[in-house]
Simulated scan of single mutants.
Amino acid sequence: MRWFKTKKNTLGAAPQSLAMSKPLPPKAAKAPEFITRAQAYKEQLETAKNFDELSALWKKFSFAYTMQTDDPFSDAYRQEVTELYQKLVDTPYDVQNELTSSHLSDEAFARGFPWTSDNLGVVAHEIGKAVQGFRVIAQHAPHAKSIIEFGAGWGNTAIPMARAGMDVCAVDIDQAFLKRIANEAKALSAPLRTYHADFLEAASNPGQRYDVALFSSSFHHCLEFQDLLTHIRENVLTENGVIAFFAEPISNGFSFPWGLRYDGEAVWAITCNKWLELGFREDFFLDLLKRTELQGEMVPDTTGLMGPAWLARPI
């Protein structure tokens, strides 16, 4: 889960909304027109004084574009995605761009997300991730005793899982957030482990195997997603292990197989914070799983808040 990165702010984190599932505009534009619109939109975003003003701007922007490369698994397609990112941000993407806790005010960091939003709907959505996690795992992986969460952020899923008696490892690239998670978990008598690493490093050498590899609004921040899934299948999962995806932008509403999202929230996250905000069309996502020797399954939302979850098991 992410946070506002405008000076030393007090606004806190932003939710991963379901804006990506909205219908597309009648026609998708070419990338140069999208870049021009996104740059003008960034100027509007920088005027927002609080979360409500920012979210209102998110809802007003959705400008689809088209990808020019046909093969979504090709190097050329990936290069097109990264070049578009660089044009939007004026710098090449680096995983270090996701390390942003230092841009929070001390007050916001201590209070934590979703509470800093001062918005009950946002709070409900964030709490809903843990609720969805409990329900999906209980129903589809009842044998699960251990979980590794990639991109644990504030710990809003990892800590409840630990409190429920699960053996939890929280992975994040941001050491400050891991320290915060560990301190909060200790105060709640919910022991868990933390792992300071990027996703590929943690998936290559997890230290042990886990019944569940969990992504909650985090998988779409990984550019090396195919290699990541392969490493998880080979190195992370137990014999009956499963990968769970919650609050991830996997939708049939995209104008391309995968790439940078164009909803208002995603464009804010890319242009203002330099985060990677990918989206995946369902058919591509299922093909991706198949290519990494995984079988995918969509699980309908049981919370009324989150949208469907996805599960992947080794074939």
Rank of each mutant, 00 (worst) to 15 (best):
A164M: 11
K42N: 08
A244C: 12
T6V: 14
M298G: 00
Q295Y: 03
E80K: 11
L278E: 04
A182V: 01
N252H: 12
R37L: 07
Y262E: 03
M161D: 02
V171P: 02
E46T: 10
K186M: 09
K60W: 00
Q175P: 07
T6C: 14
A38Y: 11
A190F: 03
M20G: 12
K129G: 14
T271H: 00
F285H: 05
K8W: 00
A144Q: 05
Y85H: 04
E83V: 10
K290T: 11
G264Y: 05
E201P: 00
S105L: 09
S216C: 14
H140N: 13
K27R: 15
F109T: 03
R261K: 07
A130S: 13
Q208T: 11
H231M: 11
K8L: 01
E248L: 02
V136R: 01
K129W: 07
D90T: 02
A31M: 09
F219E: 06
A14W: 13
Q86M: 09
R2M: 10
M20P: 04
K30D: 14
F61K: 02
T69K: 15
N205Q: 13
S218M: 03
A56Q: 14
C169I: 02
Q139F: 03
A247W: 05
Y262Q: 09
D287G: 01
F254K: 10
S117R: 04
Q68M: 09
A19H: 15
E265L: 14
S146Q: 06
E293R: 11
L278Q: 01
F280N: 09
A13Q: 09
W258Y: 08
W3L: 15
E201S: 13
D90Q: 11
A244W: 13
C272M: 10
A170P: 07
N50V: 01
I159C: 05
V267A: 00
F150C: 04
A152L: 13
P142E: 03
N235S: 01
S74W: 01
K145L: 07
D211C: 05
G279R: 08
A162H: 02
F61M: 06
V136D: 01
M20K: 03
E33V: 08
L276V: 01
V168F: 00
S216W: 04
W275K: 15
W275A: 15
G153P: 04
G279P: 12
G307F: 01
G241V: 06
K42G: 10
D211A: 06
M166Q: 07
I173Y: 11
F256C: 01
E46G: 08
P26V: 08
V123G: 07
Y262W: 12
G241T: 10
F134N: 06
K87W: 01
R111T: 14
D70T: 09
N235E: 04
A170Y: 12
D70H: 13
M1S: 13
D301I: 10
E98K: 15
I181D: 05
M166K: 15
A110Q: 07
C222D: 10
P191L: 08
K179D: 13
G279I: 10
P114I: 06
N97M: 12
R2L: 12
L178P: 10
D167C: 07
T69I: 15
T157I: 05
L178D: 05
V122G: 00
V122S: 02
N205Y: 08
D70L: 12
R163I: 04
F246T: 08
D94T: 07
